[in-house]
Design a protein around this nucleic acid. Sequence first.
DNA 1: CTGTTAGCGCGTTCAT
DNA 2: ATGAACGCGCTAACAG
Lengths: 330, 330
Amino acid sequence: MSTIRDVAKEVGCSTATVSRALSNPEKVSKASLKRIHTAIDKLQYRPNMLSQQFRNKQAKTIVILVPDIANLFFSTVISGIENVAQNKGFNVLLGDTRDSSEREANFVKLVETKQADGIIQLRPYSEDSLLPRKFVTAVNACGCENTPYPSVRIDNIDAARQVTEYLISLGHKKIGIISGLNDNPHTIDRMQGYLLALADAGIEFDKNLVAEGDFNLWSGLNASDHFARMEEPPTAIVSMNDEMAIGAMKGLKSKGFRIPEDISITGFDDNPFSKYCDPPLTTVAQPAEKLGEKAAQLLFQLIEGESEKQSEFVLPIDFIIRQSTAPPKK
Amino acid sequence: MSTIRDVAKEVGCSTATVSRALSNPEKVSKASLKRIHTAIDKLQYRPNMLSQQFRNKQAKTIVILVPDIANLFFSTVISGIENVAQNKGFNVLLGDTRDSSEREANFVKLVETKQADGIIQLRPYSEDSLLPRKFVTAVNACGCENTPYPSVRIDNIDAARQVTEYLISLGHKKIGIISGLNDNPHTIDRMQGYLLALADAGIEFDKNLVAEGDFNLWSGLNASDHFARMEEPPTAIVSMNDEMAIGAMKGLKSKGFRIPEDISITGFDDNPFSKYCDPPLTTVAQPAEKLGEKAAQLLFQLIEGESEKQSEFVLPIDFIIRQSTAPPKK
DNA sequence: CTGTTAGCGCGTTCAT
DNA sequence: ATGAACGCGCTAACAG
């Protein structure tokens, strides 16, 4: 491959002029410009970006830390990030961490070693988090309350509260919940919303009505067994995401429960499939793509040094009522 | 941030020794090694990878060209690619093209400008493809027959043929098909398999039994209208992917068809939701993660110059029979 | 085992 | 408007 020097030699000018022709064309005479571009075409010159990045001390690249890329919610958020990054002329490095903190550390190192200029973390903050961190520009997306670095998220507590209140307003009193893993921050926030709604309505919390899942389809199916086996099953179930709700619906239907006649169920996320399952799922739509876009914008502001070090954006959710919920039969 | 020189100065050795200490520690005395690491810790030195990459003329990065990241099949393939890339110490750049050839061109340029060492294209080859291309190491994954550069794929023709043959073996004679866009190579291959199976069974092709979709949920729902409105609807439907099959099931059920009693339906891909929908979907499981892994391995062989320029790997599929198919009622 | 030297390709002075 | 010269941080070649 030819270098800037080859082009300069071909034209009979200095490398500085070629460099200027590409980055500040207005500072070069029309005549030179023309001859330079001819030479570039002829030699098929492509600037070596590795050199540029090195010289400019900027990789023009950001990293996304994602627990699982094969998850529709995350991949939609990523979609939003890509939108903004492409506009900004930044590349997006994929950091599929599979919940391994070793892998996470490797990706964080990319920023420390200048291979990337910033990080978007798609996992809620926890005590053992590698972020925030000195020399590492980072924002958090889709996290929870009290994230100690710039973040974009929804109000999980309020969302879960809305869902539960809706079920209560339909007349439900015995409301089960399928949670994520107990120590997951999303689980904690959403559980709090559920508890607040119950308390407001004067319904006593029954810990037997909690089934722990892990946000995957099968764990919802699994959780539904717990409820189906109860002498007096709940008349409604709040699921902390759509996948588990869909898994639970399958389990409940196979055991003869009709939805929503015998038991109502709600989800969380508004997965594309939730509209097409049977019955369509009442759920909380997160603005996944917008979360990604906003997070990316925030990160670029930080990279460009335009923003405060601490800031937090809470995006609105959309509560979507479909056919998986109804008043309890009397 | 401190540089290699700062470390050398701190230790009182040359930068070369520090460099060696990091990349070829066996060539450095234990004593120096120890002092160097102490200095590194003290100064919090992190090698500037931009400089390394520039120096080594390798970005240690590959690009994935993906039409739509928010698609479970693609994101699973990407998962497989990441597995291998992380092992190899390579980074993965996300190239979400949204079917825009302009965006694609930008990502291809990343390789031409050395920002990346190779490309994995997750889109079937077509005439207007930017790949193969001089100076661009690339492989194709999940494509079709006759890809003119190294590729990893399944046998789409045979898979579609198997599905159709299975329906025929159940006794179906009037078999509809929901296709992708007509000019999509996958559509063409799978349609061919369908036609071969019909021909083998002596069933005449009826173009009225083809409904064009676009591989999305809603287009399956849409296509189902076409069949539902027919005077004599097909007794079975082959869908070219699971999403459209799920969309079609919803449409058919809402119009009073029972599945599989009134109409059988099959999918393609084995989307995680297909097992949980109602009824669970008979489908062709593609080895999505394996496709990604194999493609990545192939690409790294090319990058390391170990492999032939043309090669093709066809991975086996798995035909999964669930409850969405049954013999036609007589 | 270690130091010296040179240069990767580019952009940016500072001259002219 | 243009060119000469330097250096970013690192590694490889060579010499000692």
